[in-house]
Amino acid sequence: MDALVEEAAKKAAVAWIAVSARPAKLVWCAWLGGALLVVSGEGEQTLPGLPEAATVEVSLRGDHGGRIVTFDAEVSTIRPDDEAWGELVTQLAGKRLNGAGGAEDLARAWAERVERGSCSVCRLTPVGGTAPMPDDSQAAPPRPTTATRIPRRPFRLHKVRGAAKERRS
Results as ranks from 00 to 15, higher is better:
S40I: 09
A53R: 12
D82H: 10
A107E: 10
T70R: 13
V121K: 02
E42P: 01
L26R: 09
L92V: 05
R123F: 03
W28K: 01
A100F: 00
V38L: 08
C122Q: 09
A93G: 06
G99E: 07
G43C: 04
L26N: 09
E112T: 05
D82V: 00
L47W: 03
Q45Y: 04
W31A: 10
E44D: 13
L97H: 07
T55V: 08
G49K: 03
E115K: 08
W31F: 07
S118G: 15
G99Y: 01
A30E: 10
G66C: 03
K95G: 01
E115Y: 03
R96V: 13
G66F: 08
A35D: 14
K25W: 02
T55D: 03
L26M: 08
D63E: 15
Q91C: 05
A103L: 01
A30L: 06
V58W: 10
Q91M: 06
I78L: 15
A21N: 15
D81N: 09
A109T: 10
C122T: 15
L60I: 11
G34H: 12
G99T: 09
A107L: 05
V38H: 05
L97F: 14
V58R: 14
E74N: 06
G94H: 11
E74H: 13
L106K: 02
V27A: 01
C119N: 11
L32I: 14
A35K: 00
G62R: 15
L106M: 08
A100W: 00
E44A: 10
R108V: 07
N98P: 14
R116W: 03
R108I: 06
V56W: 13
V75S: 10
G86Y: 10
C29T: 15
W85P: 06
D72P: 07
D105Y: 04
P51C: 05
R79C: 05
A54T: 10
A93E: 13
L92H: 09
Q91V: 04
A53E: 08
P51E: 08
C122L: 03
D81P: 02
V121F: 12
W85T: 12
G86C: 04
L97P: 12
G94A: 11
V19L: 00
E104A: 08
L106Q: 04
